[in-house]
Simulated scan of single mutants.
Amino acid sequence: MQDENQAPEGQEVLAFRLGAEEYGIDILTVQEIRGYEAVTAMASAPDFIKGVINLRGRIVPIVDMRIRFNLGKPVYDQFTVVIILNVAGHVIGMVVDSVSDVITLAPDQIKPAPDMGTALNAGPLVGLGTLDQRMIILLDIDKLMSSAEMGLIDRLAA
C-alpha cells in the first residue's frame, strides 16, 4: 500500500480558486474537470449540495465549495467548473470558481497551517503551499468530505 503523505520528489496538486483564495487538492483524487452545467436539485439536501448530474450513466452529487466554506453567494459564469473527484471509492463533483493549473510542490514549499479559526476546521487543512508569490491552501479532500457528509452523499447517489 502506498503512503500518500510521502512525496520526496514533490506533491502534485490541482490549484483552484474560491473567491480571492487559491486552494489545492491532491491531483490523484481528480477524475476530470468539466464546465458547470445545470444540476437536478435534491429535496432535503443541505444548501451546499447543489444537486446531482448524470455523468455517463452514473448519478454524481455536486457540492458547491463556495457555499460549503461560507464564502458568499456563488456566481456561475464561464470560468466556473466542476472538478469530478474520486474520494474513498465515491465519485463527487466539486463546484469551484475556476481552475488554475497543476503544480508540483517540493516538501520545503509546504508549510504547516496556522490555527486561525477560519471557515475550515483543522481536519481538512493540510498546510500552505508557497510557489513564487502564490500562497495555496492545501486541502485533504478525504477529510473534507467527512464521514457524516459522505453518508448523505451516498444516499443522494443511490
Rank of each mutant, 00 (worst) to 15 (best):
D3T: 07
N5E: 11
A7K: 14
A7G: 06
P8W: 09
P8Q: 08
G10N: 08
G10F: 04
Q11D: 07
V13D: 00
A15V: 15
G19A: 08
E21G: 10
E22Y: 04
I25C: 07
D26G: 01
I27Q: 00
T29D: 10
R34K: 11
R34F: 08
R34D: 05
G35Y: 09
Y36F: 15
E37P: 03
A38R: 15
T40Q: 10
T40D: 01
A41S: 11
M42R: 06
A43E: 13
S44I: 11
A45R: 08
A45N: 07
P46N: 03
F48Y: 04
F48L: 03
I49F: 01
I49N: 05
I49S: 00
K50F: 08
G51I: 13
I53S: 00
I53F: 03
N54H: 08
L55T: 06
R56I: 06
R58E: 10
V60N: 00
P61D: 03
V63G: 05
V63L: 02
D64W: 07
R66W: 06
R66Q: 09
I67G: 05
R68Q: 11
R68I: 03
F69C: 05
N70A: 14
G72C: 13
K73C: 06
K73L: 07
P74G: 08
P74V: 07
V75N: 08
V75F: 12
Y76A: 07
Y76G: 04
Y76W: 13
D77P: 01
F79I: 07
T80Y: 07
V81F: 09
V82K: 02
I83Q: 00
A88R: 15
G89W: 03
H90I: 04
V91T: 15
V91M: 10
I92W: 05
V95R: 02
V96F: 11
S98R: 10
S98Y: 12
V99W: 10
V99D: 02
S100G: 12
S100H: 11
I103N: 01
T104W: 09
T104E: 11
A106D: 07
A106H: 09
A113K: 12
P114W: 10
P114Q: 13
M116P: 05
G117P: 06
T118L: 15
L120Q: 09
A122R: 15
P124T: 05
V126A: 14
V126Y: 09
G127Y: 10
G129M: 12
T130L: 09
Q133W: 11
Q133S: 14
Q133P: 07
R134A: 13
R134K: 14
M135H: 11
M135G: 08
I137H: 05
I137L: 06
D140M: 01
D140F: 08
D142V: 13
D142Q: 14
L144S: 06
L144R: 05
S146Y: 11
E149N: 09
E149P: 04
D154Y: 12
D154G: 14
A157V: 11
